[in-house]
Amino acid sequence: MRWLAFGPRGDFQCHLTLDESLTVYEFGADYLLAVHADELGVERVVEYELRVPDAAGSSPSQ
């Protein structure tokens, strides 16, 4: 699953590619809340920080 983020003026900000084991429940201005199911079916809530990559193009760590 792939999501695209755009700024307030419609300019492209970044993209996010999610694993199929995640079920997204909420997007915030700078976070994503989801449920991750592991290979045994055990579920856990995860939160990821969302931010625009720096000008050098390096991606933020998770």
Results as ranks from 00 to 15, higher is better:
V45K: 10
L16G: 01
S58P: 02
L22K: 02
E39A: 10
L22T: 03
A5P: 04
A5V: 03
V46N: 06
T23R: 13
R2I: 12
M1W: 05
S61N: 12
A56S: 11
A5Q: 05
P53L: 02
L4S: 13
A34H: 04
H15F: 13
L50G: 02
D30P: 07
L32C: 15
S21M: 06
L32E: 11
R51K: 09
S21I: 07
D54A: 11
C14R: 08
C14A: 10
S58L: 04
S59W: 12
A37I: 08
L33K: 15
D38W: 05
A29K: 06
L50P: 04
L40T: 12
R44D: 13
L32A: 11
L22I: 13
L40Q: 05
P53T: 00
A56W: 07
E49G: 15
A37N: 07
L32S: 14
H36I: 12
V42L: 12
R9I: 05
D54G: 15
W3K: 05
R51W: 11
G10E: 00
G10P: 00
L33W: 15
T17R: 10
E26A: 11
P60Y: 10
G10W: 00
W3F: 10
G28A: 13
H15M: 11
E47N: 11
R44N: 09
D30H: 13
D19E: 03
V35D: 01
Q13S: 09
T23N: 09
A29F: 03
G57V: 01
V52P: 01
V46H: 03
G57N: 04
L32V: 10
L22C: 13
E49C: 14
R51C: 12
A29G: 12
E43S: 13
Q62V: 12
D38G: 01
T17L: 09
R44C: 09
P60N: 03
R9E: 15
E20T: 01
W3L: 09
L22R: 03
D54H: 02
A37H: 05
R2L: 11
V45N: 06
F12P: 04
P53K: 00
A56E: 10
G7D: 06
A5H: 02
D30Q: 10
L32Y: 09
S61F: 07
G41M: 11
V52W: 00
A37L: 04
Y25D: 14
V42Q: 09
F12T: 00
R44P: 04
D54N: 10
M1G: 14
A55D: 15
F27D: 03
P8K: 15
A56H: 07
D30F: 12
V35P: 00
L50T: 05
E43G: 08
H36C: 08
E47I: 06
V45P: 01
G7A: 09
V52K: 15
Y48H: 08
T23Y: 01
A5M: 03
T23I: 10
Q13W: 02
D30T: 13
L22P: 08
A55G: 07
L4N: 14
L22A: 08
D54F: 00
E26R: 03
E20H: 02
Y25P: 04
Q13A: 05
G41N: 06
P8Y: 15
R51G: 10
S58W: 04
A37K: 08
E49F: 15
V24S: 05
L40P: 01
E39H: 04
E47R: 05
H15P: 01
S61A: 14
L50I: 12
